[in-house]
């Protein structure tokens, strides 16, 4: 450590700033590479890699398209950092600090996932949205969307308990008039009081139960 009282990389002793200047063509090449990678990543996104490997996975819901896209993005980011931002020629510490910040962001994501992803792994009652034995949906959650179970204007049959539209009009024309009627109906369906509602819940929540079990 001796002798590094200033950790500047002294390029010369005159105290003035000296840098290596790249050619314009160099920057154009980097840009060309970035454009190529952009086109390439858009092209691969039309490819249903998830579906090919594990048939039935909705396009984009698996992990492989995601990994490929992230790998390409990381390449592009590396191009920008190294050459456009001159990290290659810059002081080492700057690169270290910047990369360090990305690592900390990674720690942030990894540790948080370590919680949210594994919540119900040890105990099936822990952290689930649907009670695995009764099928009851956890109160205080999505079921209460909007507070008063407001029916979206274009929904024909709204399930208040699930906070979800059971039957949906994609191109509706002025369904506001129905709102009052639908509302009452849905409410009556959703809240027949205590045990009744619970007994009914498993059927309505079957899909969710399955979804929860999958995790």
């Amino acid at each position: 450590m001796s002798g590094d009282s200033h950790d500047h990389d002294h390029h010369s002793n005159d105290g003035a700033v000296h840098v290596h200047v790249h050619d314009v063509s160099f920057y154009l090449k980097v840009f060309g590479g970035l454009i190529f990678l952009t086109v390439f990543t858009v092209a691969t996104s039309y490819l249903d890699i998830d579906g090919l490997v594990r048939p039935g996975t909705p396009h984009g819901a698996g992990g492989l398209n995601f990994l490929l896209a992230m790998a390409i993005a990381t390449c592009k980011a590396a191009f920008v950092c190294t050459w456009f931002m001159h990290l290659k020629d810059d002081a080492r510490f700057n690169a270290l600090f910047f990369v360090g910040s990305v690592l900390f962001a990674g720690v942030f994501l990894a540790y948080t996932l370590n919680d949210t992803y594994y919540r119900q792994h040890e105990d099936r009652y822990q952290g689930v949205h649907v009670d695995p034995s009764t099928g009851e949906r956890a109160p205080g959650g999505l079921a209460d969307i909007g507070g008063s179970c407001e029916v979206p204007a274009n929904c024909v049959s709204y399930n208040c308990e699930a906070g979800r539209c059971a039957e949906f009009v994609v191109h509706h024309e002025g369904g506001e008039g129905h709102e009052g009627g639908e509302h009452g109906e849905a409410a009556a369906e959703g809240h027949e009081g205590g045990e009744g509602a619970e007994a009914e819940a498993p059927a309505a929540e079957g899909e969710h139960g399955a979804e929860a079990a999958e995790h």
């Binding site: 003035a16 002081a91 700057n94 910047f98 910040s101 990305v102």
Partner: peptide
């Protein structure tokens, strides 16, 4: 004292600022 000291201070400061930008966005990425 010297131009290079000023230059390198500024660059280091900027990179530190960019590092905080990364973590600022990290919340939403997480």
């Amino acid at each position: 004292e010297t131009p290079i000291q000023q230059f390198e201070s500024s660059k280091l400061g900027m990179w530190a600022f960019l590092a905080q930008e990364i973590l600022f966005f990290s919340g939403l990425f997480v």
